[in-house]
Computed example of a mutant assay.
Amino acid sequence: MEGAGMDGVRAGEFRRIYDPSESDRRWYINDHTVIRGADGRWHLFGITHPEPADPFDETEFAHATAEDLHGPWVRHPPVLRADLDRGETHLWAPFVVHDDGRYFMFYDGGGTDRTATGMGLAVSSDLFHWTRHPDGPVFRDGYDARDPMVLRVRGLWVMYYCATSTPAGGNHVVAYRTSPDLLNWSERRIAYADPATGTGAGNTESPFVFRHGGSWYLLIGPRPDYVGTEIFRSISPFHFDTSDRVGHIPAHAAEVITHDDALWITHAGWGQGGVALARLTFPD
């Protein structure tokens, strides 16, 4: 599968790198994260569940490792399971960053009030053993606030996530919060607001922000279909507009990974057979 983006942003051929299925049962990976450990080994974490899709029964995070980004990947036991005693109703969309010798995993733990979803936090020193942080959830937001993505910008940590313009619903947005320490987060601001409105599933899911060639890029989807990620470009990491659209890639829950002096984009989701990878290229 190859995708040509508008204005020259392109994805090469997607090649499957990991299938979590067992010999007698098909499994999927949906929203996921990939990080390289201190020893050079790659780790993949993600939503997982047997096919067919059942998002509110997604209660554990898959874990796999590989010596090379392109595989082969080795399946490991799940690293977290939903903790009902903490009010978690599901586990969605992990994202992992490293800081000061520890790994921080942010995720949507749900809750009975979908206008006040808990943004959970677990920590690890080795990427295999995870403990929920006592300060989690680090904040609550809605509607179904989820799909966190964290990076360092101008001396602060920035978390992007999808939500709606008000916790009870409205325009689908990419919200963001800032933090000096990954524990204390500001009030939310809006990085992107879409004309589409609703409550739950929307078209600003899986936000991913990165810098390339002096510009900032935002990935969101599904747009307009399940296997569809749109790319927006801006001079600021804190403001993107519908007019900034510069590409469309046939991928779901896409993340961008830097490896071997190249940018790679992932693709996963319900019924997609695991996780696939393609080279991402830009116009000269």
Rank of each mutant, 00 (worst) to 15 (best):
Y143R: 10
G142L: 12
Y143T: 14
R140D: 07
A93S: 05
L84Q: 13
F104H: 15
G111T: 11
D108M: 03
G101T: 01
R146G: 04
D99Y: 13
G111C: 06
R132M: 11
W92A: 11
G87T: 13
G101E: 03
G120A: 02
H98P: 04
M119K: 06
A122L: 06
Y103L: 14
R140G: 07
A145E: 09
R102L: 09
D108Y: 02
R114I: 04
D85Q: 10
G109K: 05
V96R: 00
P134L: 07
A93V: 03
L84A: 14
Y103G: 14
V138F: 08
S125Y: 02
T112F: 02
F106R: 03
E88I: 10
E88R: 04
G109L: 00
D141S: 12
L121M: 04
P94T: 11
A93T: 05
H133I: 12
F104Y: 15
H129Q: 01
V138R: 13
L127Q: 09
R132K: 14
S125M: 01
G142H: 14
L121Y: 06
Y107S: 11
P137G: 10
F104Q: 08
G110H: 07
F128A: 11
G136C: 07
D108V: 03
Y103R: 15
V96L: 00
T131H: 11
G136K: 05
G101Y: 01
V138S: 15
L127C: 02
R86P: 10
F128P: 03
L121G: 01
D99A: 12
T89K: 00
D126R: 01
A122T: 06
A93L: 03
V123H: 04
D126F: 01
S124Y: 05
D135Q: 14
H133C: 11
V97Y: 00
G111S: 09
L84E: 15
D135R: 03
F128H: 14
M119G: 03
R140T: 09
P137L: 07
D141Y: 07
A122H: 05
D135E: 14
D141A: 11
G111N: 06
M119S: 06
G118Y: 02
